[in-house]
Nucleic acid binder design. Structure first.
Lengths: 332, 332
DNA sequence: CACCGGATGGCAATCGGTTGCCATGACTTG
DNA sequence: CAAGTCATGGCAACCGATTGCCATCCGGTG
């Protein structure tokens, strides 16, 4: 690989001139610069990003840490982040920490000195640990609010409200919420919004769980749901909702005839399952894209970034898993 | 961030000694080394990976290039690759090229000088371009065979054979193959193996397509399949198979009662859809893991790596989309 | 006692760009 | 014509680690 020294020699100029021909347009005589560029092109010269990064600290790398790459929730988030990064001439480094806080720390310690900024998707680390990390590199957190650190989240409250209203319009008066992990910030938001909206609309609502945020978790919840008086269920997320529907089917409860089910996120698969899932769609790609854009703008401005949480709108997508409450009630 | 110079000063030794205390155990007096480590620990010293990489070329970074991160086919591949990389103390850089050969070149040009090796997942580039890239950095290709370059592929021939045998056992005598992109190496393998096996078992088989390797592509294929005499279909991959099932359902053809459907890969979602898809499961996580391991072993040995393709076994997973051929035939 | 080899630590070059500062020369201006 | 300004290019330090080579000191040996 040729270096600026090789190019400089071939052109009969100093290495610094070659460097400036690329990084400081105008600082070098136009003809000289053109000649250097031509020769560099011919020699196949490419700047070594490592060498450039060493003195300047500019690696053009961003990290996106996800709790589990195989979780379909992240697919579009990763894509959105990737797009925004590429647009800004950055490369995205995706780190998968397979749901382990320890792995997350290790991955971050390894990646931090390499990257210029970090997006934490659903971090498993404690608030204080995150704050420590955020001191070292510009950081944006996804799906979580952390005062003092820029966050990007979905408007869970509004989304939940829309889901409950939808169920109310279909005639349901008794609802259930299948809870996800207690530690989940989103779980808290959803449950709270659900209770509030239910109260406003004079619906009864109760909560079962917590369950693991997986297909299996949902299947396990089927028993509790089947035994409840609820005619409609809101699940912590789509995976749980799909698992729940399978569990209900196995128990002889038909969806949406006997029970309506609503999920969250609109992941890949929500449309595939049968019946297709009604869900509160998170703007996944926008989430990833916006997180990176927020990160970049924070990196550019000297001033500490506006650390309020950005709220991206959710949208209720009605499919087949919700229906008018049937006249023949079930349960108590 | 403290550097070896800071640690050296604090210990009253030369920077080189600090460096050796970490990288050359035994080269430094045991007591001195222990003291240096302790002081370094107290100061929170961490080696700067960039500075290390500059003279040595060791970045501890590997690249995995995927044609589309949102394709569920890659989820487990990425995870497997990530695991193998982490085990070997490497960090994986995932680049998404959203199905564009141009984006793929750009991504590679950007990433190549940074990484020590590359895994190309379903590359969209031409053989010759890949060979040029492979000259610059150790490379392994996934799902494609390229003489002279180590490859890791699924045993498509055997897998296809198993699928066809399965259908034959269920009494099907007339099969169809829904083809994927012509440029796809796997498509060629699958279709050839299908024809051969069908011949051996004296089955009739014909081919429709090509179609895009997506849900939509599959849905579009439904018409051609419904109009054919086939009672069983093998689709290019799971996405096509699922799309096909939906298209058939819309056309009033019931799966598996009227037509049996088999897919390829066993992606996330194959089990979710209804009916659950019978499919030739690729060992996705192993594929990713094995590719990285092959890459690493190639990087370690001086000798050019054994460039034969590694064939990983596929497995037929029978679910609900295949059934005994019904007595009342359909079509011609 | 002279010599030798191993253990230990330091010096300084190196990786490949970047950049502050200075030198030179041309041109402008009073 | 002297002084000042601007354009242009080179010198050399620097980022932070790695490493070949040399210096020193030790004990052991003939």
């Amino acid at each position: 690989m040729p270096t600026i020294y090789d190019v400089a020699e071939a052109c009969g100029v100093a290495p610094s001139t070659v460097s400036r021909a690329f990084s400081r347009p105008g600082r070098v005589n136009a003809d000289t610069a053109a000649r250097i560029r031509r020769v560099a092109e011919e020699m196949g010269y490419r700047a070594n990003p490592l060498a450039r990064a060493l003195p300047t600290g500019k690696t053009s790398l961003l990290a996106l840490v996800v709790s589990d790459v195989t979780n379909p929730f992240y697919f579009e988030i990763i894509r959105g982040a990737e797009l925004a990064a590429t647009e800004a001439d950055y490369t995205l480094l995706v780190a998968d920490v397979h749901e382990s806080a320890t792995a997350e720390r290790t991955a971050l310690e390894r990646a931090l000195p390499l990257v210029e900024g970090v997006v934490l998707g659903t971090s498993r680390m404690s608030d204080s640990t995150i704050r420590v990390m955020a001191k070292q590199r510009p950081t944006v957190v996804l799906n979580r609010v952390l005062t003092g650190i820029p966050s990007v989240i979905t408007d869970n409250a509004r989304g939940t409200r829309r889901a409950v209203e939808h169920l109310a319009e279909l005639g349901h008066r008794s609802l259930a919420y299948v809870a996800g992990p207690e530690a989940s910030w989103a779980d808290g938001m959803r449950w709270r919004a659900m209770r509030e909206t239910a109260e406003e609309l004079s619906l009864r609502v109760h909560r079962v769980g917590p369950y693991a945020p997986t297909l299996t978790g949902g299947t396990e919840a089927a028993l509790a749901v089947a035994g409840s008086p609820a005619t409609a269920v809101v699940a912590y997320n789509d995976l749980v909702a799909i698992g729940l529907m399978r569990g209900l089917a196995a128990a002889g409860v038909r969806v949406p005839r006997d029970v309506s089910v609503v999920g969250f996120d609109d992941i890949f698969g929500a449309e595939l399952c049968s019946p297709a899932l009604t869900t509160v769609a998170a703007p996944l790609q926008s989430l990833g894209r916006f997180a990176v854009q927020t990160l970049l703008s924070g990196m550019r401005s000297r001033t500490p970034p506006d650390a309020r949480a950005a709220l991206l709108p959710a949208q209720l997508v009605v499919r087949e898993s919700t229906a008018r409450r049937s006249s023949r009630r079930r349960g108590a």
